[in-house]
Amino acid sequence: MVTEISLNTICGHTTKIIATKEGKNTHIHIKTTCEKLRKWGTKFDMGTKDLMGGTDTVLARKSAENPLTPTCLVPAAVMNACWLENGMISKNLARGMGKMEIIFDKLE
Score class of each variant (00 low, 15 high):
residue 24 K to V: 01
residue 26 T to Q: 03
residue 13 H to P: 04
residue 77 A to F: 08
residue 87 G to W: 09
residue 92 N to Y: 07
residue 69 T to D: 11
residue 79 M to R: 02
residue 16 K to E: 14
residue 4 E to P: 02
residue 104 F to D: 03
residue 19 A to P: 01
residue 10 I to K: 11
residue 90 S to W: 02
residue 33 T to R: 08
residue 37 L to Y: 13
residue 62 K to G: 06
residue 39 K to S: 12
residue 55 T to D: 12
residue 68 L to P: 00
residue 86 N to D: 06
residue 101 E to M: 01
residue 74 V to W: 05
residue 32 T to Q: 04
residue 32 T to C: 06
residue 45 D to P: 11
residue 93 L to P: 04
residue 7 L to F: 08
residue 75 P to H: 07
residue 29 H to M: 05
residue 28 I to P: 08
residue 85 E to V: 00
residue 99 K to T: 03
residue 70 P to K: 13
residue 57 T to C: 11
residue 77 A to N: 05
residue 101 E to L: 02
residue 4 E to C: 09
residue 40 W to P: 04
residue 16 K to L: 11
residue 52 M to D: 14
residue 2 V to M: 15
residue 53 G to F: 08
residue 69 T to N: 08
residue 34 C to R: 06
residue 3 T to Q: 08
residue 86 N to W: 01
residue 108 E to H: 06
residue 84 L to N: 05
residue 97 M to P: 01
residue 25 N to D: 11
residue 21 K to M: 00
residue 50 D to W: 15
residue 30 I to P: 10
residue 86 N to V: 00
residue 46 M to A: 12
residue 43 K to N: 14
residue 80 N to I: 02
residue 97 M to N: 03
residue 51 L to S: 04
residue 53 G to P: 04
residue 70 P to M: 10
residue 53 G to K: 08
residue 49 K to P: 09
residue 86 N to Q: 03
residue 23 G to C: 01
residue 11 C to P: 08
residue 20 T to K: 10
residue 89 I to L: 15
residue 105 D to Q: 02
residue 19 A to Y: 05
residue 104 F to G: 00
residue 57 T to V: 06
residue 93 L to D: 13
residue 54 G to F: 07
residue 24 K to I: 01
residue 108 E to D: 09
residue 26 T to W: 09
residue 2 V to G: 12
residue 108 E to Y: 05
residue 16 K to D: 10
residue 101 E to F: 03
residue 33 T to Y: 12
residue 54 G to A: 01
residue 60 A to L: 06
residue 92 N to K: 10
residue 10 I to F: 14
residue 87 G to E: 12
residue 90 S to I: 01
residue 28 I to S: 04
residue 96 G to D: 01
residue 70 P to W: 13
residue 6 S to D: 15
residue 77 A to G: 07
residue 53 G to T: 06
residue 42 T to G: 15
residue 89 I to G: 05
residue 6 S to L: 14
residue 20 T to W: 01
residue 5 I to A: 10
residue 36 K to H: 11
residue 29 H to G: 03
residue 11 C to I: 09
residue 86 N to G: 01
residue 68 L to D: 00
residue 33 T to K: 10
residue 67 P to G: 02
residue 6 S to W: 15
residue 30 I to F: 15
residue 13 H to R: 08
residue 83 W to R: 07
residue 67 P to E: 01
residue 85 E to L: 03
residue 67 P to V: 00
residue 13 H to E: 14
residue 18 I to C: 02
residue 108 E to P: 11
residue 55 T to A: 10
residue 72 C to I: 10
residue 15 T to G: 08
residue 16 K to T: 15
residue 11 C to N: 15
residue 97 M to F: 13
residue 23 G to R: 00
residue 64 A to N: 02
residue 98 G to H: 02
residue 92 N to R: 10
residue 103 I to Q: 02
residue 89 I to W: 11
residue 44 F to A: 06
residue 54 G to H: 07
residue 7 L to P: 02
residue 76 A to P: 00
residue 11 C to W: 14
residue 13 H to C: 12
residue 38 R to T: 11
residue 28 I to D: 05
residue 35 E to I: 06
residue 60 A to Y: 12
residue 63 S to W: 07
residue 26 T to A: 03
residue 5 I to C: 11
residue 84 L to F: 06
residue 65 E to V: 04
residue 28 I to L: 04
residue 91 K to H: 04
residue 20 T to M: 02
residue 51 L to F: 00
residue 42 T to C: 15
residue 101 E to R: 03
residue 60 A to F: 13
residue 31 K to L: 14
residue 87 G to S: 09
residue 108 E to Q: 05
residue 29 H to V: 09
residue 69 T to F: 09
residue 90 S to K: 01
